[in-house]
Write a protein that binds this DNA or RNA. Structure first.
Length: 414
RNA sequence: GUGGCUGUAGCUCAGUUGGUUAGAGCGCCGGGUUGUGGUCCCGGAGGUCGCGGGUUCGAGUCCCGUCAGCCACCCCA
């Protein structure tokens, strides 16, 4: 028996989990203020949801899926991302009106782990479903940007591009294939294979990026409608005060994107994986799943990577407002009752559950970073407790009432 | 899937050309203070040296294999 979690997965425990609570909480309230409601879908789906949604030609589908057969002979897959699930759920709901959804949860991809890449990783995201207006693109990108601002991630860059509509791709694709065929002898094996299967994916390759100078770019092949949409997005972002840079090489690794694509890059991250979030418009995804036409746009942000970029690996234990010290065991019932009342008033309060020396209890109070130690001893008979402020060492006797104690501590911490 | 680096106490590590009962710092527990922490002093607990095999009188140390971790590639969050 090993106590390590499976390869590429992590136990997130205190004190590191403190940062998780904060980041997840920030996302939750921010999404709610922007009008995105919670969506919870299964972490596994019928395999075809991802095959058809994400795209057969993508690395995610070809080699990174956790696929298994259940006892009923169904092929299921642990979700490698959430967007396909969200669209599937939206179609399943039968909704005829736009829906703004926010989600948070683990995703799974079978890969060799490294810095910023895990087999189970956590994404938060939103999807603006059933809306084709550029205003939705702008709102989504802005929401993501605001999120990074709120949690205090510095050195963030927003990169933007447009891939156009499927109709724009036909002409573009043949131009790209011509170009790539011309330099095929200098490309990596992977890229050469993609010329036939999925030429756009060549832009994903770091190895070949420098050889792509002069390659035709999707942005130069946009239809009038797609171009107008793109220009509305850039204008809207400027108006919203969101700094961004246009990157004609940005194509994203999933097949479902149309028009707008964007990525949030942490410039301060020295790890190779510096994309902390990304997204785009996917007007064709619902139809790829066999549904009706549903224009939509969304993003997903990698919480593990965000914390990595912020250097939030360790940290201090969560602070406590009060630690109740039992001076002698005969007073335990009184002390336990006091902790209960302190907690009811909203204080973070704790106590040792078994008999320990006063010294040990004070040491515990200090280690837990308590603001005050509350001693329950002989003074209890006078209706009082001793309140010691651990940082200054100031000590006084106060009424043994939770409200009174709370007031004394509150004036210290505020 | 491919390549590189690393596995000794809870953590960070030391361990001399292979040589007796494997060490340090930090952390943890207890005592010094009959009701007082964070400083200081004293004491204590805690180790299949990743695992398996081989060489040797003798392996933490050398060789082979294997597993795990880390990093990079492919690609993405």
């Amino acid at each position: 028996m090993t106590f390590r979690p499976p390869k590429g997965t992590d136990d997130i425990l205190p004190p590191a989990s403190q940062a998780w609570r904060r980041v997840l909480g920030t996302f939750d309230s921010l999404a709610e203020r922007y009008g995105y409601e919670l969506a919870i879908t299964p972490i596994f789906e019928a395999t075809e949801v991802f095959e058809r949604g994400v795209g057969e030609g993508t690395d995610v589908v070809q080699k990174e899926m956790y696929t298994f057969e259940d006892k009923g002979g169904r092929s299921l897959t642990l979700r490698p991302e959430a967007t396909a699930s969200m669209v599937r759920a939206y179609l399943g709901s039968g909704s005829q009106t736009p829906m703004k959804l926010a989600y948070s949860g683990p995703m799974f991809r079978y890969e060799r782990p490294q810095a910023g890449r895990r087999r189970q990783f956590w994404q938060v995201g939103v999807e603006y479903l059933g809306e084709d207006a550029a205003g939705a693109d702008i709102e989504v990108i802005e929401l993501g940007y605001r999120f990074y601002q709120d949690i205090g991630l510095e050195g963030l860059e927003v990169q933007l591009n447009s891939l156009g509509d499927p109709a724009d791709r036909a002409g573009y694709r043949s131009a790209l294939v011509d170009f790539l065929t011309g330099i095929a002898d200098r490309l990596s094996d992977d890229s050469r294979r993609r010329i036939d299967t999925n030429p756009l994916r060549v832009f994903d390759s770091k190895q070949d990026r420098d050889k792509l100078a002069g390659a035709p770019l999707p942005i130069d092949y946009l239809s009038d409608a797609a171009r107008a949409h793109y220009e509305q997005v850039t204008a809207g972002l400027e108006e919203a005060g969101i700094p961004f840079s246009e990157n004609g090489l940005l194509v994203r690794g999933l097949d479902y994107y149309t028009r707008t694509v964007f990525e949030y890059v942490a410039t301060g991250l020295d790890a190779a994986q510096n994309a902390v979030g990304g997204g785009g418009r996917y007007d064709g995804l619902a139809e790829a799943l066999g549904g009706r036409h549903v224009p939509a746009v969304g993003f997903s942000l990698g919480v593990d990577r965000i914390l990595l970029a912020m250097g939030e690996g360790g940290g201090e234990p969560a602070p406590l407002d009060a630690f109740v010290v039992v001076a002698d065991e005969a007073r335990r019932a009184a002390a336990t009752g006091l902790v209960r009342k302190l907690r009811e008033t909203g204080l973070r309060a704790d106590i040792e559950p078994g008999a320990r020396s006063v010294k040990a209890q004070f040491r515990a109070a200090d280690r837990r970073r308590a603001t005050a130690a509350i001693v329950v001893g002989d003074e209890w008979d006078d209706g009082e407790v001793t309140l010691r402020l651990l940082e200054s060492g100031d000590e006084q006797r106060v009424g043994n009432d939770a409200e009174i104690i709370s007031t004394h501590i509150g004036s210290e911490t505020s």
